[in-house]
């Protein structure tokens, strides 16, 4: 009887575990720890709710924001802007990266200009963009694609230039045209590099998104953070910050990791850290 009960409990835990992977469990534990620290630190620090809201206050604000539909709408806006901006930046980065990586002429012509603009951080542009186009989507999209463009571009160039010559020769001997060479050899060979660029760019762009929403938007997670702080609703600001973190985890998990798993891992070109554990 007793053993059966234990078995039952074990299998209960097991099924719970299988619901959330063991690694995710460790992540959840870490989060709970931070929450506990936060809650216990409130009386110790002893400043007003406005300066340092409690987890409970933040939870209340979050529930309110969800009920009124504000938070879902903001998340939708942010996510949409992010994906659109990153897609534009990635596409342009890959295109120019192929061009520069492939053609010495294009490289000589474009590299100085591109390096020049690389040095001008996007933050410097945003006020000017707002002046030109007013607040809104255009500013955010341009800012995001600008941010993503450079790491994708530089890594694509690197990827293209490091394709083994023998693979290029093999494709040409099998009858490949230049376009087919790019499709069948250059792009897939450069993909691990392009992903490195995308990963870098995706992280930068996410920060850029929040920043440009603070300045140039009337909705979105960045706006929520900014508005909360300027309207003395710090609990909302913290909701925004937490959502920002969760959103990034979501983006990483839903978009970036699966893409990598689909391509790079399968060819045996990269080993994930987890495999080496």
């Amino acid at each position: 009887m007793k053993t059966a009960a234990i078995n039952d409990r074990n299998s209960g835990i097991a099924s719970l575990r299988s619901l959330v992977s063991p690694r995710a469990w460790k992540g959840v534990l870490g989060l709970l720890g931070i929450l506990a620290l936060w809650q216990t630190s409130i009386p110790l620090i002893g400043v007003s709710e406005y300066f340092y809201p409690s987890p409970a206050a933040v939870a209340r604000a979050a529930i309110h924001l969800v009920k009124t539909g504000i938070l879902p709408a903001y998340i939708g806006d942010s996510l949409g802007r992010y994906l659109a901006g990153v897609s534009i930046g990635v596409t342009l980065g890959i295109l120019f990266g192929l061009l520069i990586g492939f053609s010495a002429g294009a490289s000589r012509m474009l590299s100085p200009i591109i390096n020049f603009f690389f040095a001008i951080v996007e933050v410097a542009w945003i006020p000017l963009f707002v002046l030109w186009w007013g607040y809104g989507l255009k500013v955010i999209l341009v800012a995001l694609s600008y941010i993503v463009f450079f790491p994708v571009l530089y890594n694509t160039i690197l990827g293209v230039r490091s394709v083994p010559q023998v693979l290029i020769n093999a494709a040409y001997s099998l009858g490949a045209t230049r376009l087919q060479l790019i499709q069948e050899v250059i792009l897939p060979a450069a993909l691990p590099s392009i992903f490195t660029g995308l990963r870098l760019g995706a992280g930068f762009a996410f920060r850029g998104l929040i920043f440009s929403e603070m300045i140039a938007a009337k909705s979105g997670v960045g706006y929520l953070i900014f508005e909360g702080a300027s309207n003395q609703q710090t609990d909302r600001t913290i909701v925004g910050m937490i959502v920002m973190g969760l959103l990034w985890l979501f983006i990483e998990r839903i978009y970036i990791r699966p893409l990598e798993a689909l391509t790079v891992d399968r060819w045996g070109l990269a080993t994930r850290a987890e495999d080496r554990e």
Partner: peptide, 19 residues
């Protein structure tokens, strides 16, 4: 003047496409 499908090559280093 250039490579072509009329001349097939088996490379010393195989040159298979890893993907």
């Amino acid at each position: 003047l250039e490579p072509g499908a009329d001349r097939g090559v088996v490379f010393q280093e195989y040159a298979l496409l890893p993907w």
